[in-house]
Simulated scan of single mutants.
Amino acid sequence: MRSHLPSFFVVRSSQEQKPVTQNSKTGAAFIAGGTIAGAGVSATVGGMGLAGGFGAVGIGATPVVAAGAVAGAAAYRAINAIAKASMQAINQAYKEFQEQLNACKCQ
């Protein structure tokens, strides 16, 4: 049976989706932690707002919680990038060490 819906309306089956890995679980934990931190900040600080020449606008809990989730995701990606760069640097240093060691053995 062919669907007449555009491709962005078609829901994929669970068999086509990628399996949950440890990285995605860790990322979800960072996002959940950021969300909880955002909720904590909102509960602690309470009524927040922005004031300027345009007047004043109140900021509720939802944007603060969302900002916490975004901050958690950003922290996860930053830590992953640092770890990946560190591993690449370590691997490169190890390769150079092995080349120097092999050069010494040949002489």
Rank of each mutant, 00 (worst) to 15 (best):
residue 51 A to R: 07
residue 58 G to R: 10
residue 15 Q to H: 04
residue 50 L to W: 07
residue 11 V to M: 02
residue 46 G to S: 03
residue 69 A to N: 02
residue 40 G to N: 04
residue 4 H to T: 12
residue 57 V to R: 06
residue 50 L to G: 00
residue 75 A to P: 05
residue 61 A to Q: 01
residue 6 P to M: 04
residue 64 V to Y: 01
residue 33 G to Y: 10
residue 28 A to S: 01
residue 102 N to Q: 15
residue 19 P to D: 04
residue 81 A to F: 08
residue 30 F to P: 01
residue 106 C to D: 12
residue 105 K to W: 14
residue 94 Y to R: 14
residue 55 G to M: 07
residue 97 F to C: 04
residue 22 Q to A: 10
residue 104 C to G: 08
residue 75 A to W: 06
residue 51 A to M: 12
residue 47 G to E: 06
residue 21 T to Y: 07
residue 41 V to L: 11
residue 101 L to Y: 06
residue 88 Q to D: 14
residue 45 V to T: 00
residue 39 A to Q: 05
residue 67 A to K: 03
residue 34 G to A: 05
residue 70 V to L: 13
residue 91 N to D: 14
residue 30 F to N: 01
residue 61 A to I: 07
residue 98 Q to L: 15
residue 62 T to R: 11
residue 44 T to S: 10
residue 50 L to H: 09
residue 105 K to F: 14
residue 84 K to Q: 11
residue 62 T to G: 05
residue 2 R to S: 08
residue 75 A to Q: 02
residue 41 V to A: 04
residue 74 A to C: 12
residue 18 K to H: 12
residue 8 F to V: 06
residue 74 A to M: 05
residue 42 S to R: 02
residue 34 G to Y: 02
residue 39 A to D: 03
residue 83 A to P: 03
residue 70 V to A: 15
residue 91 N to E: 13
residue 14 S to P: 01
residue 55 G to K: 06
residue 75 A to G: 00
residue 19 P to Y: 05
residue 96 E to Y: 15
residue 10 V to L: 05
residue 24 S to Q: 14
residue 80 N to R: 06
residue 59 I to H: 01
residue 33 G to S: 03
residue 57 V to Q: 08
residue 62 T to N: 00
residue 7 S to T: 08
residue 67 A to D: 07
residue 50 L to C: 03
residue 23 N to C: 03
residue 36 I to F: 09
residue 88 Q to E: 12
residue 79 I to W: 08
residue 65 V to N: 02
